[in-house]
Amino acid sequence: MIRFEHVRKRYPGGHEALKNVSFRLDSGEMAFLTGHSGAGKSTLLKLIALIERPSHGSIWVNQRNLARLHPRDIPGHRRRLGIIFQNPTLLFDRSVYENTAVPLRIAGCPEAETARRVRAALDQVGLLDKERLNPVALSGGEQQRLGIARAIVAKPEVILADEPTGNLDPVLSREIMQLFQRLNQVGVTTLIASHDLDLIREFPNRQLTLARGELVGDRS
């Protein structure tokens, strides 16, 4: 469950990226966050991931008030999230397998368990046959799927995706969105920021619309 209560975010310099945003996303729900560039989509996701802190208001993620989270608890909070970016930020000196295994290694997961879960994640995104390759040998769509595999490998409670199809063609974009839908079917709360309204319309999920930092639409 994600809950925003009157959240404002003002960056140093005075720019107000979010203005009094309130909404609630139930556990296991999937929603799209739409709006033009600069509407505040990325800021909203960053607030959930605690990359940024709100200037005002409170954010709740699975009964945890993020405003009261101690800095030393931030890593633990992030380990419960799966974060996917427009650029999948892969490590190109490691194989597909090792890229996927990063969250498990950080969590200190035993080797056998790591191997099992990495293969399961790669299987889910259709990259199991490429586990030994270097990510540089993957196509753009495959790299994005690898980013998703890394995000889901530690079985997160919430998936946050920031323009995950921004660099992909329409066919690959649809594939990625379908992948998110499949992941959501196992009960993972999913929030996807995207400005691709044509693509979003193909899916029946809830749609939150931001404009100039304000939540101007909430369509189920």
Binding site: S95, Y97, A115, D123, D129, R132, L133, N134
Partner: peptide, 26 residues
């Protein structure tokens, strides 16, 4: 090692790509 075994239901096909230095390191 167990990662060489094919799991039931896995969709990948052989032949496996040639191991790269990163994979050898892993």
């Amino acid at each position: 090692m167990s990662r060489r075994r094919r799991r039931p239901g896995a969709t990948f096909v052989s032949p496996r790509p040639r191991a790269e230095p990163a994979a050898r390191k892993d």
